[in-house]
Design a protein around this nucleic acid. Sequence first.
DNA 1: CTATGGCACGGATT
DNA 2: AATCCGTGCCATAG
Length: 469
Amino acid sequence: MLQTHNHVTRHTTTAHLAQTMTLLSLTSEELRQRIENELSTNPALEMLDERRCPHCSRKLNNIEHCPICSQAKSDQSDEPVVFLSSREDFNLGASSFRENDLPDDNFSYQEEDLGVYVLGQIAPDLKPEDRKIAANILSNLDEDGLLDTAVIEIARYFHVPISHIEQIQKIFQNADPIGVASGSPQEALLVQLDVLNETHALPDLARPIIEQHMDLLSRRQDSEIARQLKSGLKKVRQAIHFIGENLNPYPARTHWGYNRSNRTWRGQIFSRPDVVINYLNDDPGEQLVVEVIMPMRGTLQVSPEFRNALRQAQAEKKELWKQDLENASLLVKCIQQRNHTMLRLMQRMVVLQKEYILSGERYLQPVTRARIATELEVHESTISRAVSGKTVQMPNRKIVPLSIFFDRNLNVRTVLKEVIEAETKPYSDSDLAEILAKEGFKVARRTVAKYRAMEGILPAYLRGTTRTT
DNA sequence: CTATGGCACGGATT
DNA sequence: AATCCGTGCCATAG
């Protein structure tokens, strides 16, 4: 009995395992594509309609009651709430990057369409008397979405102050595609950077590179930039990579730059987060609410009709359908399993890193994936897959990689940064090592130097007391 | 002599 | 098995 049972489950679990593993390493956005794909090819799968919480109209999946509301009513324990959610109303900034959400490589705006498209978005924000000016700006956009007439000329033409035109230009720039109607590629990049900065953690070097070394940037002279900024080459490369992946100097073109092989950062800026951490009702006094995002509305399930149809199916089709059915139920199970691990993982992480989430990076605990793996009694690789490539939206709306929860020295680095920020005279690395030791961080002098380099902080002798932004 | 960056090694982590 | 990280040693610059 036991043997046969084992045998049977073993058979399914090998397939199970293989698929759970692949599903686990997928981003919510990737999972969505996967599900959509399956859904259109496999007739045995269907998507059950969404249900909403009657109180807060949050979308519910696989659960009876909205955990937030029920938790809010039944007097709260201090435990954070962790649950599955398919909400889509992330606070992704002024305008989420709708067009860029879908990696459609051939997408490009037709000129007329661009005008209509942009105007449609900004029309409500325009005063009626500004319509004419807006129309004029639109007509002066080149095919890349940049303004090819100087602002001052437009101002002169309409007999209004330059600042007025610039104000309207700002409205344009914040519309989608972000940065449209900028005067130069550089300006477009900066606008995009600002918008992203509201909601995401960005490389520190991105702005100085764009501001000061646009010419070098366009020629990809990374080592030269590093030299001029007196910063680590690695940092610079990272920042340039970030710019190439996430910003676009020609707003109306979808992509620029080089190798869009997306492994390292996977365009995470534009994709939605996989986990959202927030305070209940956005009130910092309340407990934490953690939502593991299911990318699609509704509940995925094996269609009961299909099950019935299978019984009366003809012999020749039966085999094929049976296969479909099996795949379908496998997928459903695997997704459930994926969600289960994600939930357990986040549950644990939120408890361990609560201080970090509440009070910032210097309170980040050094935690290893291996430790979590033993605690949750799963294999290390499971945690690795669950973590890699995923992103978390923090209560302050910044989106960070989930792997940051496992950063071994971010806390030390932030304290280091703080110390240097506050210094009155530049400390040498050995001084810093001592100070850090007093703060409870025992690190070698050499290591301080490494951290400095990581943060792009100059050595003491090049460091004035006044910090340059 | 002091401060710092490069290289490389060993142990931990993935 | 591959990669990352902290550290020590050494060369170099001031």
